[in-house]
Amino acid sequence: MKYLLMICTDEDFDAPQDELDPTAWVEEMDRRGVRLFGDGLRPPGEATTVRVRDGSVVLTDGPFTETKEQIGGIDVIECADLDEAVEVAARHPMARFGMIEVRPFWS
């Protein structure tokens, strides 16, 4: 089953840079054949929110919701089940400083 890992952090968090480096996690998950794709995201201030209202496209700069937690990156993984997906997410370095939201795909 495929899962989306949303790598989330608070706006302001303090962590040693070497503990945030996901290189070892990426290498391990690639070696295991679990990680299909992943990348970091630009800051929320560079986002554009798109909505259609009454047939018109409405654009808003920045994220649609006002929250302290922001998605900083994503990974798509393929695991046997949710237990394995949780194990993979728990190994990500950002799980110690932010949170990893694990969501299964419909298909």
Rank of each mutant, 00 (worst) to 15 (best):
G55R: 07
R42D: 09
H92G: 05
H92D: 03
M29G: 04
A90N: 04
M29S: 08
E46L: 13
I74D: 03
M94T: 10
Q70T: 14
L4K: 10
V57H: 04
D18I: 12
P104Y: 04
V26N: 13
Q70E: 11
T48N: 08
G72D: 05
R35V: 02
M6C: 08
G62W: 00
R103G: 00
L20W: 03
A24Q: 14
L59P: 10
T67M: 05
M29I: 10
R91E: 04
D14W: 08
V50F: 06
D39I: 05
S56Q: 14
E84N: 11
R31W: 07
M29A: 12
D75R: 07
P104S: 04
A15G: 12
I71L: 03
A95R: 06
R32A: 12
T60S: 14
R51D: 02
S107L: 07
D12H: 15
G62R: 00
L59Q: 06
R32W: 01
I7V: 11
M1K: 11
T49Y: 02
P104C: 00
T23H: 07
T60Y: 05
V58T: 01
E78V: 02
G98H: 03
E19M: 15
P104I: 02
I77S: 12
H92R: 08
D12T: 12
R103Q: 00
F97K: 01
V52D: 02
A80L: 02
E46P: 12
F64L: 03
R42A: 06
A85T: 01
G45V: 01
V34D: 08
G98W: 02
D30C: 15
Q17N: 13
V86F: 06
Y3E: 00
E28C: 15
K2S: 01
K2V: 01
G72C: 13
E27L: 14
F105T: 01
F13N: 09
T49S: 15
F64D: 04
A95K: 01
D12E: 15
D61C: 06
E19N: 14
D61E: 07
L20T: 12
A90E: 06
V88L: 07
D21M: 10
D75E: 13
A89N: 02
T23W: 02
M6S: 13
F105C: 04
V102Q: 03
G40P: 05
V26M: 11
S56T: 11
P63I: 05
P44F: 04
A47R: 06
W106N: 13
W106D: 14
W25V: 10
P44Y: 08
D30Q: 14
V88H: 06
R35N: 10
E11N: 14
L59C: 12
D61A: 12
R96W: 02
